[in-house]
Structures are given as C-alpha cells and as structure tokens.
C-alpha cells in the first residue's frame, strides 16, 4: 500500500451532510441499464446521482466537474460522510478518481474503517475549522490544501496552520503504508492458541457450518 505522509492537492468543497455510500458509489448509473452500469469504472460512477439527472444528462453545477476543481485530491464536506451501506466501492471510487482524503466533522463507521484499510484518510475536523479552510481556499486561486500527517496539521497559504487529532494507531499504519493482512498474519500462533482454548470452553461455538 502507498505511504501517506504529506499530501498537497486541490481541495473541493461539497457542503452537504449525510452523503451516503449509496450516493458516493451508486449501484446504478442514471440513464443506463444495469448491465451497462456494472461494467463502468468506479471512477465514472462516483457521485453519479449528484452529477447527472436521472435521464443521464449532466447537472451543470457539480463541483468536481468545474474547471477550478479538476484533479482534486481532497474533499471538504459535511457531517456523517459515508453513512449507510458497507460497500467498499465507496472508497475505491474516490481513490480511482484521484481523491486520497476526505475532511468532514464526522463519518459513517464502516466507511471510516474501510478507508484506512485502503490507505485512504477520512479526517475528522470540527465544522468550524472546515468553514475556515473552505473560506481560506475560496480566496486563493490554486485551491490547494496540504494534509501533513507528520506534523498533524492542515495548511492553506495565507492562513495559520490548523492542527488535527489522529490517533497513532491510525496515523502510523497510514504513514508506513502497512498492509493490515500482513500485520494480522503475524498473530497466527495467537489465533491458534485462542481456538484451542475457546473450543474447549465453548464447544458449541465451533464446527458451525455443518455438512
């Protein structure tokens, strides 16, 4: 997995709370048949219901389609981003579109965990700070924001840096690009010992799938 240390890129604001994983990565594409939509890239389906009318014609005002936000790497958005379905395609779709970080006051639990599994940063930042960042970015032409995991701060030119909290058990694996499966496999002996113990204590919990 790619290491995430310092990211500088265009940050696009989507000022909307409760963006569900259904909205991020819809199972359908407006105006297309299911068998056409299923073979489309995740990137092309990203936010399709915010981006297109139900008949498939583009909406004129979707932020990621405006010239200013081409190549966006970061999203600034509202509370509870990624609520709903467990679909990991929500993370994969954002990544395929070049986005590596979403900054929001809060996140849906499953999306939040899925993000870290893919080296993608869902960064919790208070709404007031997001407002300040959005206003600061609106003043600059470049729209660029820096997310610095080493210093734990957000930087926009012309503004004082904004510090953020991220526990080390989230931050360090991201910075090291650690693959969680590899890490877990190191505990194989512990798992085997647990199985031996638990299958004696609670035999009814084992051999469940039947024949």
């Amino acid at each position: 997995m790619e290491k995430f240390t310092v990211l500088t890129g265009v940050a696009a604001p989507i000022a909307m709370p409760n963006i569900s994983t259904d909205l991020i990565a819809p199972s359908h594409f407006p105006g297309k048949k299911p068998e056409e939509a299923i073979v489309m890239s995740f990137k092309d389906k990203l936010f399709a219901n915010l981006r297109y009318f139900p008949d498939g014609t583009p909406k004129p005002d979707f932020v990621l389609d405006s010239p200013r936000y081409q190549g966006a790497r970061i999203l600034l958005t509202g509370e509870n981003f990624g609520c709903g379905s467990s679909r990991e395609t929500a993370v994969w779709s954002l990544q395929e579109a070049g986005i590596a970080c979403v900054i929001a006051p809060s996140f849906g639990d499953i999306f939040h965990d899925n993000s870290f599994q893919n080296g993608f940063l869902p960064l919790r930042v208070p709404a007031d700070d997001i407002d300040r960042l959005t206003k600061g970015l609106a003043r600059t032409n470049a729209s660029e924001l820096t997310v610095d995991l080493e210093k734990r701060e957000l930087r926009v030119s012309g503004m004082a840096p904004i510090a953020f909290d991220l526990p080390d058990n989230r931050r360090i694996p991201l910075m090291e690009g650690l693959d969680q499966l590899r890490f877990m496999l190191r505990s194989a002996d512990d798992i085997a010992a647990y199985e031996n113990r638990a299958s004696t204590e609670r035999p009814w919990s084992f051999a469940a799938a039947g024949g």
């Binding site: 259904d22 359908h28 407006p30 399709a48 139900p54």
Partner: peptide, 29 residues
Amino acid sequence: VAAGGDIVPPGQRSMSTSNRNFEGRQGPG
C-alpha cells in the same frame, strides 16, 4: 437497493418496508 432489476423509476414514489430512503437508493431519482 434497486437490485436484480427491481427498480423504482425516476420521480416515482415508493412506499417501502426497507431500511434506507437515501437519494437514489431505490434507483436514480
């Protein structure tokens, strides 16, 4: 979840025993 070809057409109103009323959940629109 608009699965298996069972979809609510755009603009139509569905009364549903399911769990999510998100935009686009039962189909675009």
